[in-house]
Simulated assay, not measured.
Amino acid sequence: MTNPVHRSTRPIRTRHYRHIEELASESRQDLPESGMRRRAIAMTLLQQYSPLPERPSLVSSADGALEAMVFTVPAYVLRHRDNPLWKVYSDMFRKLPAYTELHLLVPDDGKTRPQLENWLREHDLLQRCHFHEVPEAIKILVWAEDDYEVVHDKANGSYCLLQPHSHRRAADDYTGYFLSKSLGINRVKAPIYFEGGNLLVGDDFFLMGADYIVDSMLDLGGVLFPEKGTLATEQLAQLYRRYLDHERTFFQVGSLLYVPQEEDQKFELNGETWTETLHNKNIEGTVQPLFHIDMFLTLAGRGKSGKYTVLVGDTRLAAEVLGEELGNYGIPDVFDDVAALLERQGFEVVRNPLPVTYVDDP
C-alpha cells in the first residue's frame, strides 16, 4: 500500500468557468472496441455498394478561402447563462470573413434555432446562415470536424463526405448523415478509422496521428493479411491513400518516446485525501502527446527554402513565457521528439508556446 502523494509543486486551481455537464459527458463512448472491430469488417463488405471517388483529394486545412463552414450547435450551447461554449461560438461567428457561409446543424427542438436566429439577426449575420435541423433524439455534439472529411473527386469535380467505418459516439455518425441529405452531397464509408481533429492536410501531403492508424490496424485484424515480403502497416498506409487522397504524400505523426498514459493519483490537502487524474484521455500505448494532432500542430505554409513549415507546440517555452513551473505533466521531451520526427520527414519546424493547464474540481 502506498502513501498519498503530497502535491507540493502544483497549486490548487478551481474552475474559473461554468461547468457544462453535457459537454463533460461527451467522453462516454457508445461503441466498445469489440463493436468497432465488427463494424470495420462489415464496412469492407458494404462499402462496395457506395460509389467511391475515382481520384479522391482531401480539402486543404490551410490553403484557400473559407467559403463555407459547418457548425454543430447542440441545445446546451445556448442553455446556460455565462456559457463558455457560447462565448467561443459567438466569437468565432463574428471573426469569420464576411464572405463565409455558415451551415448550422441544430436540434429540431423549437428553441435552439429561434435563439440563434435572433442573435445572428442582431449581428447582421443571418443572411449568410443555412440551418439544417436534426431530430432532437439525435444528441449532436459540438465536435463538427471529427465526423467526416470533405473529399474532392478530381475525376468529375464532385465532392463527398467521407466517413470512417464507425464512430465511437453514435451522434457523430448522424452528423454527416443529415448534412449529406440536406446538402445533397454523397456520403461514403471507408473501412479505416480517422477523426478530423487528428488529420491535417497540406498542399501536397497530409498528416495523421499514428494512434488512429493503430486503431485501424486492430479493427481490421480479421481482414488485413500482409502480402509476402510486406508489412501489414504498409498495406494500411496504402488504404489511407486509396480512400483519402491518391496524390498527396501520407505522413504519420507520433513520438518514439514513451508517452504517459492516464493515471489517478492521490494527495492530501488540509487533512483530506484528494484524487487527481493526470494525462487525461491518454490511452495505454499511445504515441501522441495529445489525442488530436490539431491541438499541438499548425500548418503554416512554405517558406523561402521551399520546405513546408509546421508549428509544433512547446510546453517548456510556454512555462517560461508565463513564469510558471512546468512539472513532469507537461511532457516537454515528448513534444520535442514529435518535432524531431517531423524534421526528419523534411518539414521546417518552428516551436511555439503551448500552455498546459488544469482545474481542480472539489
Rank of each mutant, 00 (worst) to 15 (best):
T2V: 13
P191A: 08
L326F: 05
R242I: 02
R10V: 13
K189Y: 14
K189Q: 14
I20P: 01
G303P: 09
N352R: 15
L207Y: 03
E276Y: 05
L224P: 04
L341I: 01
D333P: 01
R241F: 05
L297T: 02
L102D: 02
S34Y: 12
F194Y: 08
H123L: 02
S27Y: 12
R242S: 06
V223Y: 10
Y148R: 13
K266Y: 11
P53M: 05
F206N: 00
Q48C: 11
M217V: 00
L31H: 04
P289V: 09
E324H: 04
A144G: 03
I138N: 10
L220T: 04
I192N: 00
A98P: 06
F206Y: 13
Q115D: 10
T233Y: 12
S158W: 02
R15C: 15
E26H: 06
R169S: 05
V150F: 09
Q345I: 00
A62V: 15
V356C: 11
T309Q: 14
L120D: 01
V214R: 10
T14D: 14
Y174Q: 13
H152N: 03
E26R: 10
F131D: 05
Y308G: 05
P97D: 10
S305G: 15
I293P: 03
H19A: 10
L218E: 07
E324F: 06
T14H: 14
I213A: 12
S255P: 01
A300F: 07
R128E: 00
G306Q: 07
S60P: 01
H246G: 00
P74S: 10
H123S: 01
L183E: 04
T275L: 08
E247M: 01
D219P: 03
R13A: 15
L85Q: 08
L317W: 05
R121H: 12
L105S: 04
S305V: 03
G346L: 06
A65T: 09
E348Q: 15
Q265I: 14
P332N: 06
L78R: 11
V106E: 09
E276M: 09
V321H: 12
V5Y: 14
E227H: 09
V359T: 06
E133K: 10
F131A: 07
T112L: 13
L269E: 15
R10G: 01
V312A: 05
N280D: 12
V253S: 09
A62T: 14
T72M: 06
D82S: 12
H292S: 11
D82W: 05
F296Y: 15
